[in-house]
Design a protein around this nucleic acid. Structure first.
Lengths: 191, 191
DNA sequence: CGTTTGCTTGAATTCTGTCAAAGCAGGTGG
DNA sequence: CCACCTGCTTTGACAGAATTCAAGCAAACG
């Protein structure tokens, strides 16, 4: 399926949209190919774009004081990715975004999101619902990181997002789950 | 300041609103007093309301398999609180909400949020921006829980939300920070 | 007052991380 | 087409951070 069809399908999971409106909406986006390991956003740059993944996989990660990477999010097809914090506060980003697999993405400038939302109220609604859902999922995740032992966090991922385990190297999964690759490896041996 | 003025001020940090519109918007909310320790939402109930805190403090918490409580969020004045997950998925809630201090709150049914947003596009925009901000803060928090040792998490809270430490019992703070009260106590002795 | 709630301290334990090393792909270039 | 990297995964031994369990104390509350 081509990029724009994926986008449209994604939008229509939450709001209805006419052919005419969609073609105008689509024109706000630009398409980009991103090779594996290439950066979409570097730490220190200001994030001013929102990405929709049509194909491949992105990750966002931060770096702690000792230089260790921590995966914040992993985005497969149909996921949205950005550093909202950097954008909302207009500050240099503390996180970086790169491609775990070769990726096709659609990009839209944040300022254009605001403009587009004023032009198309249904897009305002779409983004509200999108962010609500992402927010609630993230709250669940905090809870899981804080209240579950490493093994249970892995089991939950296995149950809820098995596709990640089939595609994404375990070093990234481990970091996403908040543990070392060594710990994850030992846990997998026991399960 | 009375409840509705607080609400209006909160909304106007993000969007402009006329007197006439605000009085209609206000009519969607109902006011409630909540005594310390009393529940707003119990685990297992379905959450269908969103709360705005005018006075006092609420917390949301989950319970793990061993019966240990884990504080998810603490909401002081001008914060919004709900179990979005329960609402969005229309499932019984895994979290409970109660009052840490006697509280005055404004409540709105989620269905009314949707209706109100259709009637007032600026409210749709308000909620989008509100949730965006909460979402980005939560992503930061995941990062902090995962990548910082307990002592640094405490120091960050001390820097960013010192008002919590002045008002909220340390047992809740400890749980919010993802550590035991004993650990927090030892950390505070060293700092 | 007596009871509850919150906070602190100590000692033992457990989980997870750290460090070091080795094996095993899969991809690349000669 | 093969040899060699490089990136990923696994294993073992050890260290360290944080939890658990137990107890005591102060302050708040009814």
């Amino acid at each position: 399926m081509d990029c724009l069809s994926r986008l449209r399908k994604n939008i229509e999971t939450k709001v209805a949209i006419s052919d005419e409106d969609f073609s105008k909406i689509a024109s706000y986006f630009r398409r980009q190919h991103l090779k594996k390991k290439k950066d979409l956003l570097r730490i220190g740059d200001t994030c001013d774009e929102l990405a929709f993944v049509c194909k491949g996989a992105l990750r966002s990660y931060s770096m702690d004081a000792r230089g260790v990477e921590h995966v914040v999010q992993i985005a497969l097809e149909d996921y949205w990715m950005a550093d909202l914090y950097s954008y909302l506060n207009n500050t240099p980003s503390n996180i970086a975004i790169d491609a775990i697999e070769d990726a096709e993405i659609l990009l839209i400038k944040y300022n254009d999101v605001d403009t587009m939302c004023l032009e198309f109220p249904s897009m305002e609604r779409f983004f509200r619902k999108l962010v609500e859902k992402a927010y609630s999922a993230t709250l669940q995740r905090i809870n899981s990181v804080k209240s579950l032992p490493a093994e249970d966090r892995y089991k939950n991922l296995l149950k809820n997002q098995p596709e990640l385990l089939q595609r994404i190297p375990l070093i990234y999964i481990a970091s996403y789950l908040g543990m070392t690759p060594e710990s994850l490896s030992r846990i997998r041996k026991n399960v």
